[in-house]
Every structure is written in C-alpha cells, then in structure tokens.
Design a binder for these strands. Structure first.
Length: 276
DNA sequence: CAAGGACCCTGTTTGC
DNA sequence: TGCAAACAGGGTCCTT
C-alpha cells in the first residue's frame, strides 16, 4: 500500500537510477493504466526520444518532468511499484509488468501492478497545476506548506479524525498504515471528530505526522505485501509498526490488546486505553 | 457538507 | 483437504 514514505523512497531511488536518461522505447498492453484510452497506442510515440529531467512527488503522486515539457504522472495505488533493471540489477520477480520504458543505455524502468489499480497520465506542458487542482489535492504532509496552522484548518471538520487523515483533499500522502500509526503516536482515538480536537491534540498529531512519516522514509517504506523498492528489495517499516494489523497484540506502551474497528470503510487499529 | 456504497482488480485469507 | 466466498485497500463517483 504505497503511501508517502513508499512514494518518497521510490522517487529517491529513481532519481539515482534514471535521471537524465533518454527514452528509447515505451510499451504497455494494459488499457486500464491510462484514463485517456488513446494513450495506450500512442505511448511509444509520445515518450521516445524524451529525457527525464527531474523526478518529484506530491502526496502519493509521482511526477516525472520531461525535456519536451510533457509530464508523466504516476499513482501506484494499491499494488503498483516501479522496478529498475540494468546490468547490475536483474530482478527475478518481474510479474505483472504494465509499462516498460527502455532507455538509450538499455536500462529498463518497469511499472509492475498486480491489481491494475495504478494509473499513469501524460500531461502537456503546464497542465500539472490544473491536474492537481481538479483533484483538490491538499498540501503534502511533509512539505513546508503543511504548517500547524494549516493542519488545524484542515482538521477542523465534523468527520472522524482517521477519515480526515486519509482524505487527500485534507492532507496529501497519508494512507491506512501511517494514519493508524500517527494516531497511536499522538494518543488520539481514530473516531474522534476533527473539530472536537483541542490545539494541544492537533499539535500532537502534527509532531507524530512528521516523526512517523520520516521514520517510514528512513525505513525505505513498508513492504507488507506488494510494495518493493525499485531495486526489488523490501522496506522494513512493517517491522516498526506499533498497531497496524496487530489486532490482539499488546500495545507497546501499556500492553492493552490492540483493537480493530472499521472507520471510513478502512480497517483501523488502535489502543483503547492510551488513545482518547 | 457528510456518510455510505459501488466499482475497479486479483492474491490471500477465511469459513464451511 | 478443498473450494468458494470474503477481504484487503486508494481513489473516484454516485446516491442518500
């Protein structure tokens, strides 16, 4: 389940692996990969000859700026991940490849995605802003724009705090694993309404958000199921998680068994004793 | 605006 | 043990 730390790990690895490389060919046979159906047949023509100038991220979206002015935007959704194949690195597990980009030096960039939820868009010069505006994408959770004040505004709503953390129009980048971990670290019950939280509690969420997401990035993300780094290796945040998918196990703080409930249609794990 | 459900997908887990 | 049904979840869209 790629969230902000997994996407950031991917971006950093791809910068090292494919920045500045020239595209020799591009191929996909997965029509679901593109919202605009005409892209599937045009992808090779669209990308061949172009050069990857920069790689960035906003929330869970990856942004590849190309020399032509076009932008390749990608979302890994549930099971998607990028893999880099080169002379040094021939990953054995190359299943479910939905997009293959070959560079002039024969390095390959693959997008693998068992469930075909992942999406790729090719935007014309200048379209990125409206792309995100259309989706009402909020500030990224670890960007400088995500201040305490911004968080306070974004979370002062009627809905459950867990639902707000998951909502990409409130804060961008947090998914189901990290929302549970952040609320545990901040000692906030996932079903509390956002607007009922007092300043001190929002501050605790703000601190926990930075701490947990950065811990996730340092760990190279979580490889609970399908997520892999672009070299095929696993992240290890899953070994550090305190509550996510630990129903019945003792809370690391107070030993009370972790509970599981459903909030906003998502499995939610928390400690009923130390999260109020 | 909020809440809930359907949908997209398929590997894995659960239940009989 | 074996099989089918339920589940998992990010995001979008639709209805209530």
């Amino acid at each position: 389940m790629p969230e902000l730390p997994e996407v950031e790990t991917t971006v950093r690895a791809l910068r090292r692996a494919v920045l500045g490389k020239k595209i020799k060919s591009a191929n996909s046979e997965t029509h679901q990969l593109f919202e605009n159906k005409s892209i599937l047949d045009a992808i090779n023509t669209l990308l061949t000859g172009d050069i990857i100038k920069s790689i960035d991220r906003h929330g869970k979206y990856l942004i590849f700026d190309l020399q032509s002015g076009r932008t390749l935007v990608a979302h890994m959704k549930m099971t998607g991940h990028f893999l880099v194949i080169n002379k040094k690195l021939n990953i054995k597990n190359q299943n479910y490849v939905r997009l293959e980009i070959v560079f002039a030096d024969n390095t390959k960039l693959l997008f693998s995605d068992a469930r075909k939820f992942g999406r790729i868009w090719i935007l014309a010069d200048g379209e990125l802003e409206s792309f995100f505006a259309k989706r009402n994408l909020a500030h990224d959770a670890v960007s400088k724009l995500c201040t305490k004040g911004y968080l306070y505004t974004q979370l002062s709503k009627k809905r459950a705090i867990k639902a707000l953390l998951l909502d990409q129009t409130c804060i961008a980048g947090i998914g189901n694993i990290y929302s549970d971990e952040i609320l545990w670290a901040a000692r906030i019950h996932p079903q509390r309404k956002g607007r009922d939280l007092v300043r001190k509690e929002i501050d605790a969420i703000f601190r926990a958000m930075g701490d947990i997401l950065k811990e996730g990035i340092r760990a190279g993300g979580s490889s609970m199921r399908d997520y892999r780094r672009p070299d095929g290796s696993s992240g290890y945040f899953q070994t550090k998680r305190r509550v996510y998918q630990r129903e019945g196990e003792p809370c690391p703080r107070c030993k009370t068994p972790i509970q599981r409930v459903v909030v906003a249609q998502r499995g939610t794990h928390f400690c009923s004793k130390c999260q109020k």
